[in-house]
Design a protein around this nucleic acid. Structure first.
Lengths: 257, 257
DNA sequence: CGCCCGCTTGAGTTAAGTCAATGACCGTGG
DNA sequence: CCACGGTCATTGACTTAACTCAAGCGGGCG
């Protein structure tokens, strides 16, 4: 019964939600086969973004929500003085653009950190389908809530007194999120950070020098192996410790120099 | 045409969304008369909360969303060490509980800062009505998005290097939100803070001593008049300046001592 | 009336910021 | 192919704003 539908149009299939690798993480999670077809009808198409290109800007009208399919984005705001605050990094399966629902205008910027591809969900159409398909409505609420919980995590991270704890939590969270869709092995993880040190700093409310020093410190402590964008987590257990309190290991700082 | 409906049942009226003073700020905004009746049917009833009582706790199942009708709440999380991070303060017209939509469990606590009253919106019923009433669906999304934008404001505030800027932004935001529903005059504002200095500190990621010192400093600068919970903003213009950059006025610190 | 809790203030410490210089990589063009 | 310039990252020396610890104040409540 399903093979029938699948053979018909390979091209269509490739872009359909039902066959997407992110199926279970994205909007379709928990939506039945028949309704998936309708959801598909709400997906305009895929869009490719080069590194550095903007998906939307502060002030842009609400056109659509966007699912990250591959690559990654950052969302951020600029204040009057041009200072950046990064609001979030967005990985495959995550949805961006919710900030515009309140006022029908975006109030932040979204930019590709690397070559990325995006599913565009025109909002008017999405809303229509959500009304027809209660399961989608529920899932949409679930996804927004997930975003909100992620915001809370960000807040908690920024509230930490010790910058080292902040960075540890950031790295932990990033590995968790990458593992979710890459099915990576649990230990001995190598991350390729799509964002710059500057971005990390502005995400955490720090300056870039502090972030750089913290990477060096964690390297020195044997927690990480760092080579530019590549971060290998040698001791996930120690990293987890650092998430809780840096105080136990600060003595290391002068120990091995 | 409307007087007719209004006289029928004063008791019912008192609790109905159509007659609520927060009408335009809360869920009913933009929903027609007929649909309002349905929304009303989704509101279980009003609940009174004493100061310090919990509306929900981390781990509680999702029962309902809650509208603050009067008074105020704080939402927060505790880490393993028992340290607090305040996620938000919630004033009349604002809705809390969205954190539970993702997993059907709350992942934060909500506590009344003062005697408060709450409209309870059982979620299953709300969802049902949202499916029947597309305008409510849209408004619900709008409200969640508003929460998300508020989270972003919180993030930006916490990202500031200068604690004085953080507190200035906090106070500015609080006056703006109080004005929204109290229709206060624009200048010469007196706030009665429902939260402790400790709460403010934990909201901003600071320690209580720093917050206390900042209040004293702003008092000394002539921006505020502070008497325990009562904060009178003498110079809204200066407060607005402090939101942008403290650097210009830090010299004041030793000037008038 | 007095205790307790929340707030303020002071003195000293420290972690993170600032400023500045150097180093490593990358893409471009000779 | 290599030299060059630019950007990003690292590191060092110094400064400073916020934290810690500690004491004292004051208002509200029993």
């Amino acid at each position: 019964m399903e093979s029938n539908a699948n053979i018909l149009d390979l091209n269509q299939l490739r872009r359909s939600c039902g066959s997407c690798a992110l199926h279970e993480l994205c909007l379709p999670a928990g939506i039945g086969r028949d309704d998936l077809v309708r959801l598909d009808s709400a997906v305009r198409d895929r869009r490719a973004l080069d590194q550095g290109s903007m998906l939307y800007r502060d002030g842009d009208g609400l056109q659509a929500l966007y699912v990250v399919r591959s690559g990654s984005l950052k969302s951020f705001v600029l204040n009057e003085a041009g200072e950046v605050q990064i609001l979030g990094f967005h990985l495959p399966g995550e949805i961006v653009g919710f900030d515009a629902l309140a006022t029908d205008r975006h109030v932040s910027h979204a930019e590709a950190l690397e070559a990325s591809s995006i599913c565009e969900l025109p909002y008017a159409r999405l809303q229509q389908v959500a009304i027809e398909v209660p399961a989608l409505h529920r899932q949409l609420m679930r996804v927004i809530s997930r975003e909100m919980v992620e915001e809370h995590r960000h807040t908690v991270m920024m509230g930490r007194q010790q910058a080292q704890e902040q960075l540890a939590i950031f790295l932990k969270n990033l590995t968790d999120r990458y593992q979710r869709y890459q099915r990576l092995q649990r230990d001995a993880i190598t991350l390729t950070l799509p964002m710059s040190r500057y971005d990390i700093a502005k995400y955490l409310g720090l300056v870039v020098e502090t972030v750089s020093r913290l990477f060096s410190r964690m390297k020195e402590m044997g927690v990480l192996e760092v080579d530019r964008k590549s971060v290998r987590i040698l001791r996930p257990d120690l990293l987890a410790d650092l998430c809780r309190s840096s105080s136990v290991s600060t003595s290391k700082r002068r120990g091995t120099g």
